[in-house]
Simulated scan of single mutants.
Amino acid sequence: MLFDDAHAVTGASGGIGRATAEALEKAGYTVISASRRLTTIPSAPTGITTHQFDVTDADSVATLERTVAEHPVPLTLLVNNAGIPTHAATVADSDVTDWRGTYDTNVIGSVQTTQALLPHLIRNRGHVQFIGSTVGRVPYERGAAYAASKHALAAMVQTLRLELNGEPVRVTEIAPGMMRGDEAGGEFMRERFNNDPEAIAAVYQGVDHPLTPEDVAECVVWCATRPAHVDVDLMEIRPLAQAAQHKVHRTS
């Protein structure tokens, strides 16, 4: 039996987004699953509807807003998950096109989507969550463009929370650390390391149980299901092997 709530998830074709859409549907919510790659968005018997959506395209964002407005179930949660990585490169050697593309998706895309759906969330006493990263607090070498985008996202989330003070909307950032799975071990890392399997394998060499997308999805659901007066401002999660951004226990 579904609750009388709709939850929208962006970037839902794989990784954290797909796992989150499935976890929310399993928890009993109607899910509006939005992604650029429509064919690989998860499907479910009753609880998930799929929509082609690009956070960087204003017309696409407007279409999603109309979908939400016409949906028979009120929107009470937006999960801003859509994001892209950058190629591993030093600041001196990086391509500024990477910087622009990453910022446009990871930051501006989240801003556009939030702006479009925020009136619904305010009206329905809702909740907006953002999937950030621990790199949004502590950067690492050869990852400046991605780290900069996640730092900017974190600043935007903190500002939004200040600006919405007094409104019935909760604002949460979930910041995962080292993660492997559909997203981190797949397209995300292939893009970052230019499809170099040895470079990807080196990241996880000897690391026991990195995070999975399902781990992060469980955190999204937990934050969303707290009482309405409880706002989880920031949740940082890492695998046990990762004590800090720069300190990872490896068995080999």
Results as ranks from 00 to 15, higher is better:
8 A>W: 02
8 A>F: 06
8 A>N: 00
9 V>E: 00
10 T>M: 07
12 A>P: 06
14 G>W: 05
14 G>A: 14
14 G>Q: 15
15 G>T: 04
16 I>H: 05
18 R>L: 08
24 L>G: 00
25 E>S: 09
25 E>P: 01
27 A>S: 11
28 G>H: 08
29 Y>C: 03
30 T>I: 04
32 I>E: 01
32 I>C: 08
33 S>Y: 03
33 S>H: 02
36 R>N: 13
36 R>Q: 15
37 R>G: 06
37 R>N: 15
39 T>R: 10
39 T>D: 13
41 I>N: 14
46 T>R: 02
46 T>H: 04
47 G>R: 02
48 I>H: 09
49 T>Q: 14
49 T>N: 09
49 T>M: 10
51 H>R: 15
53 F>Y: 12
55 V>H: 00
57 D>Y: 09
58 A>D: 13
59 D>R: 13
61 V>C: 10
62 A>I: 08
64 L>N: 07
64 L>Y: 08
64 L>W: 06
65 E>F: 06
66 R>A: 13
68 V>P: 07
69 A>P: 06
70 E>H: 14
71 H>E: 03
72 P>Q: 11
73 V>S: 08
73 V>W: 05
74 P>D: 06
74 P>T: 13
75 L>E: 00
76 T>L: 07
79 V>N: 01
79 V>S: 01
79 V>P: 00
79 V>E: 01
81 N>P: 01
82 A>M: 12
85 P>C: 06
89 A>K: 13
90 T>W: 09
91 V>S: 09
92 A>G: 05
92 A>E: 15
94 S>G: 12
95 D>F: 06
98 D>R: 08
100 R>C: 04
101 G>P: 00
101 G>E: 15
104 D>H: 12
110 S>M: 14
110 S>K: 03
112 Q>F: 10
112 Q>H: 09
114 T>G: 09
114 T>Q: 12
114 T>C: 14
117 L>N: 08
120 H>K: 04
121 L>H: 04
123 R>A: 15
124 N>Q: 11
129 Q>M: 14
131 I>Y: 03
133 S>P: 13
134 T>H: 08
135 V>G: 11
136 G>R: 13
138 V>T: 14
139 P>I: 12
139 P>F: 10
139 P>Q: 09
141 E>C: 01
142 R>V: 07
144 A>I: 05
144 A>F: 04
144 A>L: 03
145 A>P: 04
146 Y>P: 01
146 Y>G: 04
147 A>H: 12
